[in-house]
Design a protein around this nucleic acid. Structure first.
Lengths: 252, 252
DNA sequence: TCAAAAGTGTTCTACGTACACCCATGG
DNA sequence: CCATGGGTGTACGTAGAACACTTTTGA
C-alpha cells in the first residue's frame, strides 16, 4: 500500500467499459404472455467475469484500458472485440465515472462508459463461456464497481433515444417490416403502441421507405418490407456529435 | 521525445475543462443590477490564456488536472475556482475527448469536458486580467486543442436543455419575473417567443409559483415575481443522473 | 369460413401558435 | 392622455391516441 501523498502523485488509470444491449426472446418458458404476444423480445446484456482483484469473480461490463494508439471510440471497440468477440452496430459514449470511492486498491480509476446496440441478426456470435455470459435486464447479477449504475444510465439513454424509430431500428437488419420495428420499439420502451398509429407516424417521418418486397409469415396479409431512407445508416457507422438532451448530471 | 513503444506504456493524463456560460448585456457595462435585468443579453464565455506549451499564449477553457482526492465533478469545480475564481450555479459533465491526435508532445491527454452556467447575479466576480478574459460567443478567439469543438458541443447541450424554462432559469436568482425568464430563454435559443404563450406554458408546467410580490420598473403594469417550485433547486445543487437525450455521438 | 395480422379512415383531444384585447403604471 | 409592457381570451392548426373498419392470407 502507498501512503496518501504517494497516491496523490499517481496518474489515474483510464479504462473504457461498454454496456451492450441485444434483443433476445423472452427468458424462461415462452409462457405466451397475451400482452407480449408476438415474438416476445427482451433486452439482454453480456457480462464478463473478472479474473483478478478487485472484485475477482464478480461480473462486470466488458472493457479494457485506454492505450496510447487508440482514440476513446477505438479503444471501446477494441476492448469489446477482444473480450467478447462482438462488433456492435451502434456505439456511443455515455458518461465518464471517476468517483474517488470507486477505486479499489492503490490505483485511482477513471472509466469512460459506452453503450452499444447489437443487431438482432448478430446473435450468431453469442457464445457463452465460463467467463462470458448473457443476462436479461431484469435478472442481472451483482456487478463489480459501479457497473450497475452504468447500466442504469445506459438504459435511460437508450430509451430517451428510442423515440418512434431511430435507435430501435439499429437492432434490425437492412430490411424489416413495420411490425418488426414496432416490436423492437415497444420492447425497449416497455410499452405497447398502436400498430396503426405507429405506422402512420413512422411513414410520415420519412425515415423509412418501402423496398417493394413483402414477407409472408403467417395466416394473415403479407407485410411490406422497408429500408432506411438515405445513405444506409447501418453497419459500422461513425457518429458525428455527442448527444444533446434533457436531464441532469450525476456525481462522478 | 520518446519513441513509440515508450509512449505506448505511458498512462494518459486526465484533465477536466469547463465551458462556462454567462449572460451579459449586449455591449454595455457589466452593471448587471440583479433587481433590474431588462436589457438585451447575450452569452459570454470566460477563457484563460495558456502560459506553457503546447499552445502557449493561446486561449483555452479553464480547467486542470484530475487529482487523486477529488471526484470528476469536484475536480471540475476546484479547477474553475482556482483558475477563474468562479463557482457556477450549474455544473454538468459534457463529454470526454481523447483522440490520439489531440495530444501534443509526449503525453497522451484525455479531457473530460464540463459545461456550467453562471447566474446573472454572479457577475460581480467577473474580473478580467491578462490571463482571464470574457468573450461573447459570436467573437471567440482561436482556441487551444479542440476546445472550440467542446464549446460547440456545450452550446448544443445548453440549447437542448433549455426547453421553455428549466436550465434557462438557472441563470437567474431566487426571484424573477416571467419576462426575465423569457428573455434568458430567448437569448439562449436565439429566438423571440410570444410573451403570452410563454407565460401560459410555464405556469401550466408547474415549475414556478408566484411569490406574491411584484416589481415596478417602468411605465407599465408591475410584473409579478416568481420562484421555483419545490425544494429550491438553486444554489450549489448536486445533479443526480447524467442527462438522457437524443443525438448522436462524436468521435473522440 | 374463420382467425389473425396488415393496413386505412375517422374522431377526439392536447397543446402550441397567432393575435386581438384589456390592465396598470410613469410620464 | 398615451405609450409601454404585463396579463387574459380565443380561434386555428397540427399531431398523437383511440378505435372502428377493410384487406389478405393460412389453415
Amino acid at each position: 500500500m502507498l501512503n496518501v501523498s504517494e497516491r496523490a502523485q499517481q496518474a489515474p488509470i483510464v479504462a473504457v467499459s461498454t454496456a451492450i444491449f441485444a434483443l433476445r426472446p423472452l427468458a424462461g418458458q415462452p409462457a405466451a404472455d397475451p400482452e407480449r404476444a408476438r415474438l416476445g423480445v427482451q433486452l439482454w446484456v453480456p457480462l464478463v467475469r473478472r479474473t483478478r482483484p478487485p472484485f475477482a469473480d464478480a461480473w462486470a461490463l466488458p472493457g479494457g484500458p485506454l492505450t496510447w494508439d487508440r482514440s476513446l471510440d477505438e479503444a471501446a471497440r477494441a476492448a469489446l472485440l477482444a473480450s467478447t468477440g462482438l462488433a456492435p452496430r451502434h456505439l456511443e459514449q455515455l458518461y465518464s465515472f471517476g468517483g474517488v470511492e470507486r477505486s479499489a486498491g492503490d490505483q485511482r480509476q477513471v472509466t469512460i462508459a459506452y453503450w452499444a446496440l447489437l443487431g438482432i441478426d448478430q446473435g450468431a456470435t453469442r457464445v457463452e463461456t465460463e467467463n462470458l455470459c448473457w443476462f436479461p435486464l431484469g435478472a442481472l447479477p451483482e456487478l463489480a464497481f459501479d457497473h450497475a449504475d452504468i447500466i442504469a444510465v445506459a438504459i435511460d439513454r437508450l430509451r430517451a433515444k428510442t423515440v418512434y424509430a431511430d435507435i430501435a431500428a439499429r437492432f434490425l437488419g437492412q430490411v424489416f417490416t413495420l411490425s418488426d420495428l414496432r416490436e423492437v420499439h415497444d420492447a425497449v420502451l416497455g410499452i405497447r403502441s398502436d400498430p396503426a398509429n405507429f405506422r402512420r407516424r413512422l411513414l410520415a417521418s420519412g425515415q423509412v421507405e418501402p423496398t417493394g418486397g413483402a414477407r409472408r409469415d403467417g395466416a394473415h396479409r403479407p407485410s411490406q418490407l422497408y429500408r432506411f431512407t438515405g445513405s444506409a445508416p447501418t453497419e459500422a457507422e461513425r457518429p458525428l456529435a455527442p448527444r444533446t438532451d434533457d436531464e441532469t448530471s450525476r456525481s462522478a
